[in-house]
Design a protein around this nucleic acid. Structure first.
Lengths: 232, 232
DNA sequence: GGGGGACTTAAGGCCGGGTTAAGGGCCGGG
DNA sequence: CCCGGCCCTTAACCCGGCCTTAAGTCCCCC
């Protein structure tokens, strides 16, 4: 787990927000705070926090709507912290994608414990081993280095990120939209030709072309898949 | 996610246990129940449930101790459901390894929502490859790849969609009307000849013809059925 | 024997993806 | 502070394959 978790608190009431930021900070978290849904959404995309604490009663957009918007683009852990204590509210909040739901008033100690519980479960997430091996391709995450048949590949940062993303999902088809949002960190953009260009360069460095693929198989209409070459 | 989650409820009070088992079962879970910590531990090791709902006030061993014992050997999601509502109790429960903490009395709806939230986050364990197998034919949904006798089939997007649609309904006759609306996504079109053409190409790639079918059996006047070849 | 549904093959248009080249921005070094 | 290089983006063009439409033939069933 990360030494210090980066939290984002989205809460409009200063009487709650300010002391809560202080309390969470004292408990060893790095805390950012926003007071509207739109600013919270923006901060979420910019900062990529480890966890979001979300109030439902926001001035501009209802928190449930914001939650659904966030869930459309990210799987960041989200804890709902709100005054709405109705049973159906809790169910709706959790089903909309919330990881936990605490009702005001709550103590900082309990919120902190719930934060730690959620982070513990979400943390390792998609088990990211140090080095991913696909066929004769090795991708070393920590060293940010990839080798093919034992010889190092000279990759640019984006190329490595792209290769790492694909290697972590080896055997599965990945859409270019997913690549764009996850690797390029853009919420939604039409210009996915950039991905094509980088794929092309990656292919060249892998010693293959789109028409004679070894590792990067394009699945027309869907995306690309990284899988070991057919030995025949 | 699994079609149906296998839950284990550890709760000594029959006045709570019995209706709760019933309520969770009605909500689509497979529920087992134990009334002591030791039996719960044993059941946990034997059955390997997908999630445990744990009461803290058990007759033989305190629930917190049981939680720590479980955490020493497994990472199964555990939701604590108890009457102890003290703040420090919640913190201790979560820090001991609980994934969530609900205080009695709670509704079955809320517990169910929390169960779903925790399961969603704990996710499909290692991996859940969605592969459909019919005879020597394998259809891998995530990889969008089909293999026959172990060798990969080179299918076009529509061909794969068609094969997947049929494989998901293996053994059943599917009308071309259904294929047209589901695979081609057209509300209603008379030109279902396109389906015939694709079926023909699919047959060729499967190494069969309509007169010598292996997997794709046409049912005249009704539609087509995908089923394993007769071994002779 | 006739009719109709089904299968196959052929041809053409269209769209998605690949590759290359040029331009601009950022960063490090001189 | 300036310069140079690397890297990313954008744009343009090309290419190939896939889907559709059309037409012909077969075969089953009436």
């Amino acid at each position: 787990m990360r030494a210090v978790a980066r939290l984002l608190l989205i809460e409009d009431d200063p009487a709650i927000r300010i002391p809560l930021v202080r309390a969470l900070h004292e408990r060893g978290h790095a805390v950012a705070a926003e007071h509207t849904a739109m600013r919270g959404l923006q901060a979420c995309l910019d900062q990529r926090p480890d966890l979001v604490v979300l109030d439902l009663g926001l001035p501009d957009i209802d928190g449930l709507e914001l939650l659904k918007m966030l869930r459309a683009v990210t799987s960041i852990p989200i804890i709902i912290a709100t005054a709405r204590d109705g049973d159906s509210e809790v169910v709706k909040g959790l089903d909309a994608g919330g990881d936990d739901y605490v009702v005001k008033p709550f103590t900082a100690a309990q919120l902190d414990a719930r934060i730690r519980a959620v982070l513990r479960r979400a943390g390792p997430g998609p088990q990211a081993p140090e080095v991913i091996v696909v066929g004769d391709l090795r991708v070393d995450q920590a060293a940010r280095q990839a080798t093919l048949d034992g010889s190092a590949l000279d990759l640019t940062p984006r190329e490595f990120d792209l290769l790492l993303f694909l290697a972590a999902r080896a055997g599965q088809v990945v859409s270019k939209r997913d690549i764009l949002t996850e690797v390029w960190q853009v919420p939604y953009g039409g210009a996915d030709k950039t991905v094509d260009v980088h794929l092309s360069w990656l292919r060249r460095k892998l010693g293959e072309t789109a028409s004679e693929p070894l590792y990067l198989h394009t699945v027309r209409g869907v995306g690309v898949r990284l899988s070991p070459p057919d030995r025949r």
